[in-house]
């Protein structure tokens, strides 16, 4: 048993290399996770932005956190899809009958989601800089932002894993992306919540995306984060843990 544990990280490395190749060879994935959020950012800043009053001088500064979360939400549908095809094609069966750590295959997909999100987020931030995004935040604040974004992608990835592993069809595997897409739209990601009618506003203020967006925005503009960061963390950690437990349960049943 010892020898098998020792290989966990190298096995996971092989899995990561494999699914990163899948991403780089799929134009469709690259368009959805990077080009689409950038297009949305251009649309909001240069078409709608002039009419949106946020109280900040630069709308792209206000918008960027939401765009980053949208990019993450876009990408998890693909994690779901990749897991689904591995189950369908019998690739997990092949891996599970080999002397490798049982969860390496699943963690490989999760890690792929984190790494590919990191790459697309960096590209999006670079484009935002070209569009005039500026931040006074120091290195610690940036690290905190990176940490929250990583935690957010982990949370969504585990939810996507449940869908991918238990879906009966490709469409079923991808459908998880839709409700997740809506959360950033009904939050303070694009416009301040105070302009919304009271029912919508209540939903927007008490759903997980708003505190995450507010925390990232505060960190990037060097404002105090207050309680928002704890609410954001509580949401992410809580949902992550529950989703992880269910995903592992489904994975063991399937393997």
């Amino acid at each position: 048993m010892e020898t098998i544990k020792n290989y966990f990280f190298s096995d996971m490395g092989v899995m990561l290399g494999r699914s990163m190749r899948h991403i780089f060879r799929s134009l469709d994935t690259i368009i959805t996770v990077t080009i689409m959020p950038i297009a949305m950012m251009l649309l909001f800043v240069y078409v709608l932005g002039g009419a949106i009053q946020t109280g900040t001088s630069n709308y792209v500064d206000y918008l960027l956190p939401g765009i980053l979360l949208i990019a993450i939400a876009n990408s998890v549908g693909y994690t779901s899809y990749r897991l689904f095809t591995d189950v369908q094609r019998g690739i997990f069966e092949r891996f599970n009958s080999m002397p490798i750590a049982r969860s390496a295959a699943l963690w490989g997909h999760v890690l792929t989601s984190l790494v590919s999100n990191a790459i697309s987020l960096v590209v999006i931030i670079l484009v935002a800089l070209l569009m005039g995004f500026r931040s006074p935040a120091g290195i610690l604040s940036w690290l905190a932002v990176a940490g929250i974004l990583a935690l957010f992608s982990l949370t969504l990835t585990w939810i996507a894993a449940i869908a991918g592993l238990s879906a009966k069809s490709v469409d079923g595997a991808g459908v998880i992306a839709y409700p997740i897409h809506f959360l950033p739209l009904i939050s303070s990601a694009f416009v301040p919540t105070r302009t919304m009618p009271s029912g919508v506003r209540a939903f927007a203020e008490y759903q997980p995306v708003t505190p995450i967006v507010e925390t990232i925005r505060a960190l990037l503009s060097n404002q105090p984060v207050g309680n928002e960061i704890w609410i954001a963390l509580a949401w992410c950690v809580g949902i992550s843990c529950i989703a992880y437990i269910f995903a592992m349960r489904v994975y063991k049943k399937r393997g």
Binding site: R18, H22, R25, R89, G90, I91, E93, S97, M98, P99
Partner: peptide
Amino acid sequence: PANVRQSISLTGQFAAVDEIL
């Protein structure tokens, strides 16, 4: 089970190859 896996190889009913690689 872990030791069994070290002495076997499985070719399942459907060719389990990675199509993108």
